[in-house]
């Protein structure tokens, strides 16, 4: 394995996930585990958003449309139709992809970009929220309750640790998927469309098809987060499932963590929710304080670190890397910084 793979390969994913997987062995506090499960669900939703917006440059303001679809599918299929929880979860993911494809087809086909695309996605999510709030089979305004019936067969677990591992496994799967996409033709084309759609088309990239694939995949991932949410909290209403809160969570985490990076959504979700929990500890329970903090963090990030936490980490590493490369050029055992070895690979 060349040293370049340390920054663009799968090893960091394995390390981070392995480390996170150990947490429930040491942390027994239900409050902390609860916080972590919720944060991982947000991270998963954010990973979906990041694929479409971070890599593809199509900024959605309505990822609630996918989250809610995944959540409602999981709940309705179980409660109203008696479908197995795992099947319902998978169907929800499929429906999330379908909703993504439909929204994408309607908006990308007609050439919607930038803020117009963002507004249309917001509208779709709001329409779904209103429909879910008034329809009968969604439980209407009263919401829908998945009966508590703890058994692994029902995708319901006694311990929060089990939920944590399930959530982490899903996040890990998307980390791997993201990395694989980054290294594949599809990833290169997706980024090319983000950077300059006309130039991409001139190079034979079918921009419409690339964007449709991205939004379907993005919808599927965020729907998985919705399904997991339903499974964990066992209660949904229209405002939870299709409310703007999750659209905002899904975009805040990657922006703070690092747009278009594999770890961005996870890092961003942990940072934001860690901060808001910590602030509750220090400031006490002031309603809405977490949102105030989110807003402040967002402004700070956009102003001072537009490439997010991952960008800052990258810069620091490059700086440290430059120093260590000079002082110890032969230290092959140490995880060498990325930029120096890349030069070796290229025939100068």
């Amino acid at each position: 394995m060349s040293a370049r793979d340390l920054s663009t390969g799968f090893l960091p994913i394995v390390l981070v996930v392995a480390l996170l997987a150990l947490v429930p062995l040491f942390v027994t506090s239900n409050t902390i585990l609860n916080f972590l499960v919720f944060t991982l669900i947000i991270a998963l939703a954010a990973q979906g958003w990041n694929l479409l917006a971070g890599y593809g440059g199509q900024f959605s303001f309505g990822h609630a449309a996918f989250f809610g679809t995944g959540a409602y599918a999981a709940a309705i299929l179980q409660v109203n139709l008696g479908v197995n929880a795992y099947v319902a979860f998978l169907v929800g993911i499929g429906l999330g992809a379908l909703v993504g494809f439909v929204i994408g087809y309607l908006s990308f086909r007609s050439g919607l970009k930038g803020s117009y695309f963002a507004l249309v996605t917001l509208a779709f999510a709001e329409v779904l929220r209103i429909l879910a709030n008034s329809a009968g089979f969604t439980g209407g305004a009263a919401g829908i309750l998945i009966p508590l019936d703890v058994s692994a067969w029902n995708f319901q677990f006694e311990s929060r640790g089990a939920y944590y591992w399930v959530a982490l496994a899903l996040v890990a799967a998307v980390l791997v998927l993201n990395r694989a996409i980054e290294r594949a033709r599809f990833g290169a084309q997706l980024v090319a469309v983000r950077e300059n759609e006309a130039a991409a088309r001139a190079l034979g990239v079918d921009a419409l098809s690339v964007k449709l694939k991205a939004i379907a995949l993005s919808g599927a991932i965020t729907a998985a987060a919705g399904g997991l949410y339903a499974q964990y909290f066992l209660y949904l209403d229209a405002l939870i499932a299709y409310g703007p809160w999750i659209s905002i969570e899904a975009l805040l985490a990657p922006i703070v963590g690092g747009l278009g990076t594999v770890f961005g959504p996870l890092v961003g979700a942990l940072a934001l929710h860690g901060l808001s929990e910590a602030s509750k500890l220090f400031v006490g329970e002031i309603p809405g304080i977490d949102l105030v903090i989110f807003g402040a963090v967002l402004i700070l990030v956009v102003a001072f670190a537009p490439d997010g936490v991952m960008g800052v980490i990258g810069r620091v590493r490059r700086r440290l890397g430059g120093v260590s490369a000079k002082t110890s050029p032969a230290s092959a055992a140490a995880p060498a910084p990325a930029p120096a070895p890349t030069r070796e690979e290229t025939p100068a």
Partner: peptide, 29 residues
């Protein structure tokens, strides 16, 4: 994009690089 597949390539008068990508990544697209 279909024309590109058929074997017609074009450049742009006002250059359109994928700004955040490296030179080799640009060409790789």
């Amino acid at each position: 994009h279909e024309r590109a597949r058929m074997g017609i390539a074009r450049t742009f008068q006002i250059v359109q690089p994928f700004a955040t990508l490296s030179v080799v990544e640009n060409i790789a697209v």
